[in-house]
């Protein structure tokens, strides 16, 4: 089965690389390990939530606004899409990720349409 591991953060968290923030080397090491396991089938890393742009269209026209969006409780920082046998394997990988210690990892099964 395919799962997305969504690395979630909060706007108040220290930034990666800052003194108080997470060690980027931990993320690099995890990235190397999960890639070498041969299970990664997709994924992405995102720039910070302050770079987000929202677009919504209504009958009145399109609204374009720029982040950060104070009302967002949490944001997606990045994702791995992995193909593993079952949710237990996905959970095991999520536990290994440094993202689980800093924010949390949300595991979502990929819909099979």
């Amino acid at each position: 089965m395919k799962y997305a591991l969504l690395l979630m953060g909060h706007p108040g968290d220290a930034e990666c690389g800052a003194d108080e923030g997470p060690d980027p080397r931990a993320f690099m090491a995890f990235d190397q390990e999960i890639n070498e396991a041969g299970i990664v089938v997709g994924g992405f890393a995102l720039e910070g939530p302050e770079t987000a742009v929202r677009v919504s269209t209504t009958t009145a026209g399109a609204m374009v606004t720029s982040g950060p969006f104070a009302e967002s409780g949490e944001f997606v920082g990045g994702s791995y899409v992995i193909e593993v046998a079952d949710v237990d394997e996905a959970i095991a990988w999520a536990k290994k990720s440094p993202g689980a210690a800093l924010g949390h990892i949300e595991i979502r099964p990929i819909a099979d349409y």
Binding site: A85, D86, D88, A90, P109
Partner: peptide, 14 residues
Amino acid sequence: TTTGIPFGTPTPEQ
């Protein structure tokens, strides 16, 4: 089914 909860004998750790 959707979450992919496994069937099968648990490992000693599980």
